[in-house]
């Protein structure tokens, strides 16, 4: 019954807050295992687009599809809640400010949702927590509360928490921009590792170097539209649009 052929497909996404049009007819396809970076100036709509994918912010127009299923289906309220909760299990999300649950240990943060939603036994939950925290290099802090972890460590636990649901797609919204510079690498390493495992990822970032090194495709957004899109070596090295060039000049100058 699938009338779509891409793993992730955003069709004519449109989002307004009152008269402010934040997303203006954006379409984007991502294939399985691809990694797409979204860059652009502040307020251009990057977060809004990302958060529309798991319907954290609802679109006012357009469709989002994942693996043959429409995420933002038009359903009666109750049915829609069931549908979206199920869809979100397949879409991991990592936030700029981690949003770890402070009243739970690293282990409990990771297994809370799988235990509640998939009914894991205690043994299975322990195994899952160890597996996921090992993957992000946090096994030695498994019983720590977030308050006793550094920013980088918190973000790695947050990634493990998202991975524990075995998502098909991972969304990162500036996962490293709240971190002290010396803690950025440890999180980037984890994301690189996911890339090597062919996790499908959409990454909003301000780090051009990182985007260039892991992404298959880069999207430059400005004022709610995709200005330019292509492989990183083109978008970063030979951008065709003035707005892209200007943004990169400012941004790369800031870095250097």
């Amino acid at each position: 019954m699938t009338d779509q052929s891409h793993f992730v497909e955003i069709r004519h996404a449109q989002k307004s807050y009152g008269t402010l049009e934040v997303l203006k007819d954006i379409s984007l396809n991502v294939e399985r295992g691809q990694i797409v970076a979204i860059i652009g100036p502040s307020g251009s709509g990057k977060s809004t687009l990302l958060r529309a994918i798991n319907d954290l912010d609802s679109l006012t127009g357009g469709e989002v599809w994942l693996d043959g299923v429409q995420v933002n289906k038009d359903l009666p309220h109750r049915q829609y809640e069931k549908h979206i909760n199920a869809m979100r299990q397949d879409i991991g999300m990592v936030f700029q400010h981690f949003n770890l649950f402070p009243h739970l240990t690293a282990r409990e943060n990771v297994v809370m949702a799988p235990k509640m939603l998939k009914g894991l036994s205690k043994e299975a939950a322990d195994k899952l927590a160890e597996e996921q925290l090992e993957k992000v290099g946090m096994l030695d802090r498994i019983d720590y509360y977030p308050s006793r972890l550094s920013g980088g460590q918190k973000q790695r636990v947050a990634i493990a928490r998202a991975l524990a649901m075995k998502p098909k797609l991972m969304l990162f919204d500036e996962a490293t921009s709240a971190l002290d510079p010396e803690l950025v690498d440890e999180v980037n390493m984890v994301m690189k590792k996911l890339a090597e495992e062919h996790m499908t990822m959409i990454i909003v970032t301000h780090e051009m170097d990182f985007a260039a090194s892991v992404c298959d495709r880069v999207l430059f957004m400005d004022q709610g539209v995709v200005v330019e899109e292509g492989p990183p070596e083109i978008v970063f090295r030979k951008p065709t649009k003035d707005r892209t060039r200007e943004f990169l000049r400012k941004h790369l100058a800031g870095v250097a």
Binding site: N54, L56, E81, N85, A86, R88, Q89, I91, G92, M93, F95, H97, N99, L100, F101, M112, A113, M116, L117, A158, R161, A162, M165
Partner: peptide, 21 residues
């Protein structure tokens, strides 16, 4: 912090579950 509810919803919890847990 409203990020707490958001994080809970993104792993698939319903609003009631997110409130409770």
């Amino acid at each position: 912090d409203k990020g707490q509810m958001e994080a809970a919803r993104t792993v698939g919890l319903s609003r009631g579950q997110a409130l409770r847990k």
